[in-house]
Every structure is written in C-alpha cells, then in structure tokens.
Design a binder for these strands. Sequence first.
DNA 1: CGGCATCCGTCATGATACTG
DNA 2: CAGTATCATGACGGATGCCG
Lengths: 133, 133
Amino acid sequence: MTGDMIEPPTPGADDCGRLPVENGEFVRQVLDRVGDKWSLLVIANLHNGPRRYSYLQQVVDGISQRMLTLTLRQLGEDGLIERTAYAEVPPRVEYALTPLGKSLLGAVTSLIQWVSTHHSDIREYRARARAGS
Amino acid sequence: MTGDMIEPPTPGADDCGRLPVENGEFVRQVLDRVGDKWSLLVIANLHNGPRRYSYLQQVVDGISQRMLTLTLRQLGEDGLIERTAYAEVPPRVEYALTPLGKSLLGAVTSLIQWVSTHHSDIREYRARARAGS
DNA sequence: CGGCATCCGTCATGATACTG
DNA sequence: CAGTATCATGACGGATGCCG
C-alpha cells in the first residue's frame, strides 16, 4: 500500500481506449452548450414531439423568458431543434427536435435519468461533506 | 403542410412516459453541477483509473488551477470522486471515481461521444445559421 | 508537487418592461 | 402568445502569490 507500484501515466502515451476528450476546443464549446443546464432540460422535454414556447416555459420551470428564448435560438443554430411558426391568431410557435437533436436524446436522457436516480445519494454525500466528513 | 392537423399537446395531461424532469430544484442543482463544463471532462478523464492532479490539469487543457481545484472539491463533496494523498516527497495526490462516479460514467461518455461524433454537423449548422439561412 | 486565498474583470443570468 | 430590449448583479473564471 505504499503506492509505489502505481505506474506513471506512461508519459507520451494516451490512455488505451481513451475518449477523444481533448479533441480541440470546438468539442469543448459544443459540449459546453449541449451540457448546459437549460439545454439539457429543453431537449429532454421535446423528446415526445413538438412543443410550444409557453409549454416549455412551464415545464422547464425556473427558466426565464430570456433564457428560454436564448436557449431555443442556440439549439436552433446548432441544428438540434427546429422552429415552426403558424400564422394564426393567437400566434402559435412550436419547437421540435431535428434528427440530429434526436440522436442526442439518448445521452441526454441517460444523464437526467442518472440524476433523478442518484440525487438522494448526492444529497447525503453533500451533507456529510459539510459536516466535516 | 398547413400544420392544421397538428394536435394540441393534450392540455392537462403530461407526456406519456415522461422523464421526471421537473422533479424539484435539487435535481436541477445536481444536473447543473454534473453538466458543468469542467466536471464532465474531469469525470471522463478518470474513466481509466486514478489520475494525478497535474495529469488532469494537462489533459483537460484549458482549465485553470482554480477551476480544477474547485471542480475536484465539488465532485468530492458530491461523492463522485475520491482523493488520495500519499505522504511522500515529492507529494503525490490521486483522484479516482467512486462507485457512484462510475455509475455516472456511462451517461457522461455517451454525451462526449456524441459530441465527438457530431461536432462537424453542428459546425455546419452554425455556419449556415450565421449566414442568414 | 499540489493546493489555497485574494484580487479583479467579464459575462452570463434574472427581473422588468415593452412589442408584434 | 411569443417574443425583444434594457439594466443591474453576482457568479464564474483567470492571474498572482503564498503555504504544506
């Protein structure tokens, strides 16, 4: 248990089947946007089909108009969702996942599912950490 | 294609097999931390075993000492990683995923894999959006 | 080597009010 | 209903310097 047998990270060699984590800063940018708190929730809430602006504002709950608008616009620019406006009165606008967006759905739901499943564990750990461990 | 046949979101009824997305604000908090820009990358880079502080600072690449320290501490408080310090000279400190952290690994790698796979698509969409589409 | 504390700029976010 | 515009704040993040 001296730790001496722990081999160094084999300098120069990457981890074996390593993820292309440091694939460049663009990947980081995308990851940052996709991994965004609001983006995740918006995408997740579109997993059952097109939804209206007001609907999203209700279910995401806590998001401000500004953030919802911005998030939707960004997701649109990234080709993850598509906006459809109907020229009616009252106006109706719907947002739906594009094929690209749907391909992301699996990862997003996995993440949210995990959080839903383990949030109590985390709560305990946090409490313990605050107590001084 | 008039869009008139689009049925309303069945007011009052939730999505059928819906995710517990609005499970409370604590889920949101956890999701926010886990979805944090650096957390994802740190967790991903621990997927092959314990890693040293300096190693992480190199591979995450772009993270500052401050952010790495903060991220590691928070992940520790949440019970996702574990810190092990060896009383040697020079000092060596290693971080490793806890079982809880490993359970998150699947979702995290899915997300990162997706980004790595589709970042070029997104790049195109962004360019097109900026052009005015 | 690994880490923490402080200072300090900026940028993202939320609240509010207004428009098509 | 579905946004846009404006403003204020505060959290985030970088740089620096010190400590175990």
